[in-house]
Amino acid sequence: MTQNVSRRHLLAGAAATLILPASARAQETPRTSERVTRNTSSFVAQDWRDHFDTLGAGAIVCDTASRALHFWSGDGQDYRVYPTSVPKTDELTRRGYTRVVRKKVGPSWTPTPSQLERFPDWKPIGPGPDNPLGTHAMYLDWPAYLIHGTHDTRKIGRPSSDGCIGLYNEKIEELFALTPIGTQVRMI
C-alpha cells in the first residue's frame, strides 16, 4: 500500500513538532522562590488571610517575585490584581509590613540621598510627563518607598525601580481611588 504525503500533511507534522515542546514548557509552573526574569507578570494567587489577621481599611500585597500587586477592599467584596514594576535588586527591595500614610495626585519627585550618591546630576522633577512617579502616588510609612504610576510603560513587568512599586498610570489612578489612607501593605 502506497502512502500519499501531501505538502499540507508535511507542514502540519513539522508544525506539531515545533509546538509540542513549547506547549510542554508552558505547562511547567515556576516555583515562587525562583526569580522571574521575563518581562511579564506570572501572577501567583494570593489570599489576604495568608498575610493579615483582618482586612481593616483594606489590604495590599506587593509580590515582587511575580511582579503583581494584589488589592482587597476593607469589606472583602473587591479583589484586584495589577501588573507592576519592582525593585532592580534584592538590596533595593524592602520586605515586610507597612501602610499607606499619604496620597498625592500629581506628585513631585525628589532623588533620594542614595540616588544622588550614584547620580549627582539628578534634580527634582515636578508633576508632568517627565516625572518618574507618574500621575498618582501612595506614600508608605517607610521613607522613600511608594506605590506610584509611571509614564514609562516599558517598566511594568520588569525589575526597574530603586525600591518602589510602579503601575501603569491608568491602574494607579484606579487603585488610588479604591485605597483609603491606613490601608495595610505587605511587600513579599
Rank of each mutant, 00 (worst) to 15 (best):
F119P: 00
N131G: 01
P127A: 14
K103R: 10
E117R: 12
V101R: 05
P127I: 01
V105G: 05
Q115L: 09
P124I: 07
P127C: 06
T112M: 03
V101E: 04
Q115W: 04
P129G: 10
S108E: 12
V101W: 02
T110R: 13
T112Q: 03
W109A: 08
D121K: 13
W109C: 03
N131K: 00
P113T: 15
G126F: 00
T110P: 00
F119E: 12
E117Q: 09
V105Y: 06
P124F: 11
P127G: 07
P111G: 09
P113G: 12
R102G: 02
G126I: 00
V105P: 00
G106N: 14
P124E: 08
P124V: 11
W122Y: 10
S114Q: 14
T110Y: 11
P107M: 08
P120N: 04
K104N: 05
Q115S: 11
I125W: 03
G106E: 05
V101G: 02
W109P: 01
P127D: 10
D130M: 07
T112S: 15
D121N: 12
P107K: 07
T110Q: 11
P120T: 10
P107I: 06
P124L: 07
N131P: 00
P120S: 04
K104W: 03
D121G: 09
T110L: 00
P129H: 15
T110F: 04
T112P: 01
E117F: 02
P113H: 10
P127E: 11
K123R: 14
N131W: 00
P120M: 03
L116H: 09
G128M: 08
F119Q: 13
E117L: 07
E117G: 04
D130W: 02
R102I: 01
T112F: 02
S108N: 13
G126K: 01
E117M: 05
D121L: 08
T110G: 03
K103Y: 05
G106Y: 03
P113R: 10
I125L: 08
D130Y: 09
P111C: 08
R118P: 01
G128W: 11
K103V: 06
P113N: 13
W109I: 04
R102E: 07
V101Y: 02
L116G: 11
S114G: 07
D130P: 01
T112V: 14
G126D: 06
P124Y: 10
R102S: 04
V101D: 02
P129V: 15
T110H: 14
P113V: 15
K104G: 00
F119I: 06
L116F: 05
W109G: 08
